[in-house]
């Protein structure tokens, strides 16, 4: 059947968790692309072999529709991947963990770097001086301080007040929200829920 392979690609994406990116399926994409090429040559063949006034138009239409569908689905595949990648920029930050990086294509990495660049240069223009980090303050604040537990021996942390705190594994601290937030996102701290 036409278009089976591209559907397989999309299913692969759908089966994976929303917050992950499965490996970039280069083989799958190439197979779809070559199917498109085959279909295209078939159409040309049909057009050449048959007399002009008696073309089997249905056969041509079917193949053309299959090409369009392949194209549309492929675009969906890479678009969805970009959306997930974009989410990661907001969740994790500009530096991707190596296991995510491995799953990306060269062009996706380029896209990600460019996206980071535009985002940072946009955020720099906000406000009077150094700009505003939009990836902070994502939740409405309930209190200034939040109780966190350190998951690793992270070492020294300089507080806004100038004091230095040493983060030890499994100890709990009261930190200001703005300071704790990036560390929680990086997985160094864990919010203590009550």
């Amino acid at each position: 059947m036409y278009c089976d392979k591209v559907i397989e690609l999309l299913k692969e994406l759908e089966r994976s968790r929303e917050d992950t990116i499965p490996p970039y399926n280069n083989d799958g994409i190439n197979q779809v692309l070559s199917e498109m090429k085959t279909l295209d040559t078939e159409i040309l063949d049909i057009l050449h072999k048959n007399p002009r006034d008696n073309l089997p138009m249905d056969a041509v239409r079917l193949r053309r529709a299959a090409i369009e569908r392949n194209k549309r689905c492929l675009m969906t595949y890479i678009w969805t991947r970009l959306q997930r990648l974009k989410e990661m920029r907001w969740e994790i930050g500009a530096i991707l963990p190596s296991d995510v990086r491995q799953n990306l294509s060269q062009s996706e990495i380029e896209w990600f770097n460019n996206y980071c660049k535009s985002l940072v240069s946009y955020m720099k223009t906000i406000g009077p001086d150094t700009g505003l980090n939009l990836t902070q303050d994502t939740k409405p604040p309930k209190s200034l301080y939040t109780e966190v537990r350190s998951l690793v021996d992270a070492g020294k942390l300089e507080l806004e007040s100038g004091e230095v705190l040493i983060l030890r594994k499994n100890s709990q601290y009261m930190l200001s929200r703005s300071q704790a937030e990036p560390l929680i996102r990086q997985g160094i701290l864990e919010q203590v829920r009550h």
Partner: peptide, 12 residues
């Protein structure tokens, strides 16, 4: 730009 890396491999 990113889309184009795929599109340019498609039939003309």
């Amino acid at each position: 730009n990113h889309f184009d890396t795929i599109l340019r491999h498609m039939p003309q």
